[in-house]
Computed example of a mutant assay.
Amino acid sequence: MDWAEKEIFQLTSVYPAEADTLYHSFPLLRPTHGRMSQEFVYHAHCRELLDRVVKGTDTRPGTAAEVCCLCGEVSAVTPMRSAAIGLYARMWIAAFPDIPVFGDRHFHHEALYGSTIDDLEADARHRLAVAHRTVGAIDCTGRHHGETVHCKYAGT
């Protein structure tokens, strides 16, 4: 919970006009994979979902962190083809830009297999989609964390 709250707080400071929506987006931030017990993985997952909330885009498709979790599982049991490694690299860079793992090799995968990687990404995000991961209607009591607030959703 603390990690999710930290991400909400950080994004609220960047988008103060969206503070109420971000606060009520907390239910979206459920971990979906065991590797999300690692803080950096879970933070990346939350950041992407909250960014989608702010932008008003679909929160159901898999996140880059979720795709990385999938690629990690696959790579542990079978060799991955070049396009799949390119997908892993693309998603890793999107989710964890401050943790370089692939170096410049991802440029070669993108140059050779970019359109295949696009297709793999779309498919993976679709397959990892969480149907109920939507903000939906917000009904606020006018209290956040036990404090009375002027929430734009209060009394709706």
Rank of each mutant, 00 (worst) to 15 (best):
A65I: 02
H108N: 06
E110S: 07
D58F: 03
S82H: 07
E48C: 13
I93F: 00
A89Y: 00
E5Y: 07
E73T: 08
A84P: 12
E5G: 07
K6M: 06
R90H: 07
Q10D: 08
A129P: 14
L112E: 12
E121L: 14
R105W: 07
M80G: 04
D104A: 13
V14P: 13
S37H: 09
G62C: 05
Y42V: 00
A124C: 09
H108R: 14
H43F: 08
E147R: 12
G86V: 02
D58V: 05
D118S: 06
G34P: 13
G114W: 06
A89H: 03
A154L: 03
T78F: 04
H150D: 15
S115H: 08
V41E: 00
G114P: 10
D119Q: 11
H150F: 03
Y88M: 14
K152L: 10
A111R: 15
H109F: 09
L28R: 10
A129G: 04
V101P: 03
H150L: 05
F9Y: 14
R47P: 10
H33D: 13
S25C: 09
E66M: 06
I93M: 02
V101N: 07
E5D: 14
R143N: 06
I117R: 07
P97W: 04
M36P: 02
V74A: 06
W3L: 09
D2L: 09
D118V: 01
Y23W: 14
T21L: 14
D58R: 06
A124E: 05
S25K: 10
D123K: 15
D119N: 04
P61V: 00
S115K: 11
I8T: 07
A94P: 12
V149L: 00
R81S: 09
A84L: 01
A95R: 04
C151G: 08
I85V: 14
R127Q: 15
G142I: 06
G56W: 01
